[in-house]
Design a protein around this nucleic acid. Structure first.
Lengths: 144, 144
DNA sequence: ATAAGTTGATATTTATAAATATCAACAATT
DNA sequence: AATTGTTGATATTTATAAATATCAACTTAT
């Protein structure tokens, strides 16, 4: 976890090569809400080392742990983001992600709350769940 | 939710008939940790109306929401049981379910903690998650 | 210029989870 | 007695998610 862990680096083809999956698969994971890669103003994606680790966790969850993409999405939807970014009660009331729970918070278009002023791709919630099996730890931490 | 919601009633064959699945499938769900039906001293299972509802939710999760059994198990593993049954810190330290997070708490053989003196099948944690999509609500409740 | 990227759609392949269907040997229920 | 239940194992079927492979039309990078 050095200083450029989160630095956008690899074009999609290179990321796919490193993960041994197809380019299409990476776009699918994005469409499904599992990842949120950096995009240049031109629309071209650049993947960071953190993204690679995140994707390795996703691959592990699918191939070894036998979770479906929907299952991973459901797990990520349980991250108590409102505690991590310190939402006010009013923020929560205005948050679709808080009231629903079908998609990870970073897949929503946030309006009228704390997250409206944050880019999800740079948000602590997204960045700290590089490893998708850490959701329970997060729940423990906020309740202790 | 009347007084006999949780009363053991239906033999496995009758439960399977009501849910339109095979008897084997119900046993599989149990082996996978998703359900915990009452068992007579003879080993014969009896399913309650609550079990039927629970199983309907499981069927919905698999067939409509596209979760795998492993995915449902992972979701249920995130229930903050230690808050629901008011574990002490020492209870938590002695709890395999707290330290791991691969199976729902009711699938563990509890020793040296609060749950050692409770039958999981009668525990509030198990009984209150009849609807497996309520995990986020539970997380919200304990953090507010 | 060539290579690599984009979106969006569609079609196919592949892998495998989910479910069913079997055994056998035995016990409990009605 | 006949039915329904138990465990445990195995084998097969079925459904479908996951992944790949295609298009086309276009844009960006080197």
């Amino acid at each position: 976890m050095n200083e450029d862990t989160f630095k956008p680096k690899y074009p999609i083809r290179e990321a796919a090569r490193r993960l041994n999956v197809s380019v299409h698969t990476l776009r699918m994971y994005e469409r499904e809400g599992l990842i949120l890669p950096f995009q240049k103003e031109t629309g071209h994606r650049l993947f960071s080392d953190s993204d690679i680790v995140r994707l390795q966790c996703i691959r592990l969850a699918i191939n070894q742990k036998k979770l479906s993409i929907a299952g991973i999405r459901s797990m990520l939807s349980l991250i108590p983001c409102w505690k991590i970014v310190s939402c006010t009660e009013q923020d929560r009331l205005n948050c679709q992600s808080y009231s629903e729970s079908k998609k990870p918070c970073w897949t929503y278009n946030h309006v009228n709350n704390l997250c409206a002023s944050i880019e999800c791709v740079k948000c602590e919630v997204y960045l700290s769940f590089q490893d998708c099996s850490n959701v329970k730890e997060a729940i423990k931490n906020i309740t202790s």
